[in-house]
Write a protein that binds this DNA or RNA. Structure first.
Lengths: 129, 129
DNA sequence: GCAACATTGACATCACCGTGCTAATGTCTG
DNA sequence: CAGACATTAGCACGGTGATGTCAATGTTGC
């Protein structure tokens, strides 16, 4: 048991090309251990990882770079915090749900601003500078 | 009080160009309410949002698309789960911390696989297919 | 030792991101 | 009304992501 495949074999069984396997390693996702002479050795773990990665990308239409960013998010706490903080500030239109009740208060914001702005659909009072 | 700025004014006070303000809106981050005639109206909230966004990007060297992905992660639960699951599988080299104790078990994995592979730094036993 | 395969590096392509600029058209303001 | 500014649409361009391919060199297996 305990098969160990060369890059080409791994490519065939995972659906990636050898080129991409090297690329994937280069960008930090799924890196294979090396033989004494530098050959990449793909074990069951790596193969599994590669297959699931492939599915992940295809099923959600995201790119390797996106996963890369997810990694950064998880490893760089500061980044994670900063992004979360920004996203938490104001809700960014949940346009997934059929926008009914949503539109209402979005419209409201509209109104509020317009009301504060001018009696007629006008712009700029209390002129800046 | 309650200033409302036109796109050009907003651009000047936020550091973005008018072009970028429209782009940022197009990609779903920071969208400004419109006047009756379609003009974008930037209020204090939007301006704040734009400034912090600018900082966020510059300080962590990320792109608008990255923030966009973060939004997807937060809104599409399935995606979030899938990505998290994949990342949880095997740890992806925390190369931020000076790799000492890390290297050890990484080396181990190496050894384990090599041991299973061949007595000499060799490859492929129990040949596949 | 020779054929098959691996490694790295480079060049090439296509698509998309981030931006600027221009054009055609509509809006606001003095 | 005229001039300043907004809107959308489109061309353009440099950068980077995702891939392929080719070259030069080393490794492996029989």
């Amino acid at each position: 048991m305990s098969e160990v495949l060369t890059i080409q074999e791994a490519a065939e069984t995972t659906g990636w090309s050898p080129r991409m396997l090297r690329y994937i390693e280069r960008v930090g996702l799924v890196e294979a251990p090396r033989s004494g002479s530098g050959y990449r050795l793909y074990g069951a773990a790596e193969l599994q990882r590669l297959r699931t990665l492939r599915e992940l990308l295809h099923q959600h239409d995201i790119g390797l770079s996106d996963v890369g960013f997810a990694v950064r998010l998880r490893q760089e706490g500061v980044l994670r915090a900063a992004v979360d903080a920004w996203l938490d500030a104001e809700p960014v239109r949940p346009q997934g749900v059929s926008a009914a009740d949503w539109l209402s208060w979005e419209q409201d914001k509209h109104q509020r601003l317009l009301a504060a702005a001018a009696p007629h659909p006008n712009v700029k009072e209390t002129a800046p500078r």
